[in-house]
Amino acid sequence: MLTTKVVSNKKPPLLSDSESGGSTSLKTVLGVFIKSKIEQRKQKIKAKLEKEISTTTSEWVKARNTGFLALIDSANNKILDEIEKTISKH
């Protein structure tokens, strides 16, 4: 007759990031990469807005773009999407 002994029903403890192979460092690398891409995107949008400010005669466009420039430094991807959508319409 075959018998088995159950030692424990407990699950093994989860490993910390350092014990599991360093997924924290992967998150850090991805975070730096994403921030870099967002900064590149911000610079590209800023250049478009500044160019339009310097070439337009419309006071409305100048005011709008100046407002967008003030928002860009604290903008996330969603805000950048909206700004790009607005300036690409014109």
Rank of each mutant, 00 (worst) to 15 (best):
M1P: 06
L2G: 03
T4I: 08
K5M: 11
V7D: 04
V7I: 12
V7E: 05
V7L: 10
S8K: 03
S8A: 00
N9Y: 02
K10D: 06
K10H: 05
K10E: 07
K11T: 03
P13A: 11
P13I: 12
S16R: 07
S16Q: 06
S16T: 04
D17G: 11
D17M: 13
D17N: 13
S18C: 12
S18R: 15
E19L: 08
E19P: 06
E19T: 05
S20R: 14
G21Q: 14
G22N: 09
T24C: 13
T24F: 15
S25K: 15
L26P: 02
K27E: 08
L30W: 02
L30K: 02
L30R: 02
L30H: 02
G31P: 13
G31E: 14
G31I: 14
V32C: 05
V32R: 07
F33H: 00
I34M: 14
K35Q: 11
K35V: 04
S36A: 13
K37L: 05
K37R: 06
K37N: 02
I38K: 12
I38V: 14
I38Q: 11
E39D: 15
E39T: 14
Q40N: 06
Q40K: 07
K42S: 09
K42C: 10
K44S: 07
K44W: 09
K44N: 08
K46T: 10
A47W: 03
A47S: 09
A47Q: 05
K48A: 09
K48T: 08
L49F: 05
L49M: 01
K51I: 08
K51V: 10
I53Q: 05
I53M: 04
I53W: 04
T55K: 13
T56C: 09
S58I: 14
S58Q: 12
E59R: 13
E59I: 10
W60E: 12
V61Y: 10
V61M: 10
K62A: 08
K62H: 07
K62T: 09
K62C: 06
R64I: 10
R64K: 14
R64D: 07
T66V: 08
G67S: 06
F68Y: 03
F68N: 01
L69F: 12
L71K: 15
L71E: 01
L71A: 06
I72G: 04
I72L: 05
S74G: 02
S74F: 01
S74W: 00
A75Y: 01
N76F: 00
K78P: 08
K78L: 11
K78H: 09
I79V: 03
I79D: 01
L80E: 09
D81W: 15
D81T: 15
D81P: 13
E82K: 15
E84S: 13
K85N: 10
K85G: 08
T86P: 03
T86F: 06
I87G: 03
I87T: 06
I87D: 06
I87E: 07
I87P: 04
S88M: 00
S88G: 00
S88V: 01
S88K: 03
H90M: 10
